[in-house]
């Protein structure tokens, strides 16, 4: 058991997978000698060499496009988009090809690649360094999108992403990179992609969050528990797509109430998809309207105003209490 932060945990998972499987390779801008601008790939080039840890020229479309070719031929590339704001340049390749080789050939070809995408706000960075775009990426059939919330699940999800036979976008909440440490077990754990995790059981209300919002939501939940002793069931979504209908609906059937906390803009986001899913499978169990605590439908403001626009502990708490008090 080692106490690691999220950067160290992802690095550990990459290191373990590269050691276990020579077909795992890492590529991207500044991922080699520099160890990545966030140091997530630190030390890998020294250990595995330039052929397996590639400092690419500056071109996102080429990073994913060549990774698709590598994956088609049996490698397991783990590419990096330096920031979510630059990941849109990969979309023609991801949507047009990465997501489709399997269905296009009825399974003759498949594309086992991982694209790491640091995302999210709260780090006082320049424009394009703060967006949460899991909704856009989650909208492509054939692409899996996962988001860890802490060091321990970051390690297990990365393992699962690399072992997965299909393209996985692995989004890293960079505000949580060094925010806290967790015990990460000696022996690797694997989680199943497509499964949410109930991290705290309860009976009064279900609360769902993911990524950096998990941390914010946990604090809000704890405040409410202390203030009024409510029994809250807290779910870490972990996989945006394909979403875990079972875990979400089983919980709502039990609690009858639901609140979702999402950093991304309100419209067309995972929170909306969660509500639609509950509507399809557990509507008659709801005792209150579902509350969404979300970002707003504005272009992500520069960091001078950014914090006003991110869901806070207070906002999450008020949203959850609104559902409890209905």
């Amino acid at each position: 058991m080692a106490k690691l932060n999220m950067v160290q945990a992802i690095n550990l998972a990459l290191d373990e997978m590269m050691a276990e499987d020579p077909s795992v390779i890492v590529l991207g801008e500044d991922v080699g000698v520099d160890g990545g601008v966030f140091r997530v790939t630190e030390g890998l080039i020294e250990k595995y060499g330039e052929a397996r840890v590639i400092d690419t020229p500056l071109a996102e479309s080429a990073i994913i496009g060549t990774a698709i070719g590598m994956a088609l031929a049996g490698l397991k590339p783990v590419g990096e988009m330096q920031f979510c704001g630059f990941s849109y340049i990969m979309i023609p390749q991801l949507e047009g090809h990465g997501s489709r080789y399997r269905s296009r050939t009825h399974g003759q070809f498949h594309v086992p690649l991982v694209m790491r995408v640091p995302y999210g706000g709260g780090v006082r960075a320049l424009e394009h360094h703060s967006e949460s775009r899991e909704a856009s990426l989650g909208h492509f059939p054939g692409v899996k999108v996962v988001i860890p919330s802490g060091p321990r699940n970051a390690r297990s999800l990365m393992r699962a992403a690399i072992l997965d036979p299909d393209p996985v976008v692995y989004m890293e909440p960079k505000r949580s990179y060094r925010a806290f440490k967790e015990d990460v077990p000696e022996t690797p754990e694997t989680v199943e992609i497509g499964k949410a995790q109930v991290i705290q059981e309860g009976t009064d209300v279900t609360v769902i969050a993911w990524g950096a919002m998990m941390h914010t939501t946990k604090k809000a939940v704890e405040e409410i528990r202390q203030a009024r002793g409510a029994s809250i069931e807290l779910i870490d979504l972990l996989t945006i797509s394909p979403m875990d209908t079972e875990t979400i609906c089983a919980s709502v059937r039990k609690t009858g109430r639901l609140a979702v906390v999402q950093e991304a803009p309100l419209s067309f986001g995972p929170a909306s998809e969660i509500i639609a899913t509950v509507n399809d499978h557990a509507l008659m169990h709801l005792e209150a309207p579902v509350k969404r605590v979300c970002g707003y439908d504005v272009v992500t403001p520069y960091f001078g105003r950014e914090n006003l626009y991110m869901p806070t502990v207070g906002r999450a708490r008020r949203g959850i209490e609104e559902v409890l008090d209905f």
Partner: peptide, 8 residues
Amino acid sequence: AISVPRSK
């Protein structure tokens, strides 16, 4: 270009 030299 950050850490990547012109030669690469």
